[in-house]
């Protein structure tokens, strides 16, 4: 059985240090969404973070909700699912420094180097969503919208949403404060068998430029 942990947000240093690879995590408090448009606006264009963000939430969810603005101006949140995080690697060091974020939630993890050199030294860890399609479970965990920023400019998918959440999960701990990665460990185990799968299959008649020939390579 995998270990199950509940964490109150904003997460304190002790709770984060206690997270172990492969543990199942549920969150209570406020999480915010931010992806490329928000990062660009703040980090490249020099706009300020929404006031008080750091005191409300230190959890950045790489997410675009299936949401709608109702006629009375309130929001309906349907499904909530993560988007692939590796694409945001280049923003993270500056973002963590600026926002004080300690937990990143997303899809698929980040490269191991990011955990060792960017997240762990800043006291931050990565949680992955499960299966990637648990939109209904996570949607049920969202109790309300605290605030939404840049909605008109960026649209629903790219806006910064602040969700008040309860029993929000499950997530799996992918990285810890030692900079280890569950995905990398599991990937190494899978890699051991890969060469055998190709044994006896003849080489293709035409090769392609730009491809790796080593199937244990990380592609993200």
């Amino acid at each position: 059985m995998l270990e199950e942990v509940h964490v109150s947000l904003p997460a304190d240093a002790e709770a984060i240090a206690a997270l172990k690879l492969g543990s199942v995590v549920y969150l209570d408090g406020v999480v915010y969404t931010a992806r490329e448009r928000v990062y660009q606006r703040v980090l490249n264009e020099g706009h300020s973070l929404p006031q008080g963000l750091g005191e409300i939430s230190n959890v950045n969810f790489h997410c675009s909700p299936a949401a709608a603005v109702k006629d009375d101006g309130t929001y309906e949140i349907g499904g909530v699912t993560a988007t692939a995080s590796f694409r945001f690697s280049k923003y993270l060091a500056d973002w963590l420094d600026l926002s004080g974020t300690k937990i990143i939630i997303g899809k698929g993890g980040m490269p191991g180097d990011d955990y060792q050199h960017v997240l762990a030294p800043r006291g931050a860890v990565y949680l992955t969503t499960v299966g990637y399609g648990t939109g209904a479970l996570l949607g049920r965990g969202v109790q309300g919208v605290e605030a939404v920023h840049w909605l008109d400019e960026f649209g629903i998918a790219q806006a910064m949403w602040l969700f008040r959440v309860k029993d929000f999960g499950p997530f799996l701990v992918d990285s810890d404060l030692q900079g280890q990665s569950l995905f990398a460990q599991q990937g190494d185990l899978v890699n051991r068998k890969i060469d055998d799968l190709y044994t006896g299959l003849k080489e293709p008649a035409l090769h392609r430029y730009g491809e790796t020939k080593d199937r244990t390579d990380e592609l993200i």
Binding site: L2, V24, C63, S64, P65, A66, G78, G79, V80, T81, T83, V130, G131, Y132, G133, T134, G135, A136, L137, L138, G139, R140, P170
Partner: peptide
């Protein structure tokens, strides 16, 4: 196995709550 079990739970939640199974529709 845990992932698949969670997904099956998610399908049931979607049907009960009438909300999308996955937000990336």
């Amino acid at each position: 196995g845990f992932v698949i079990k969670t997904m099956i739970n998610n399908y049931q939640t979607a049907t009960e709550d009438r909300r999308p199974m996955c937000a990336d529709t």
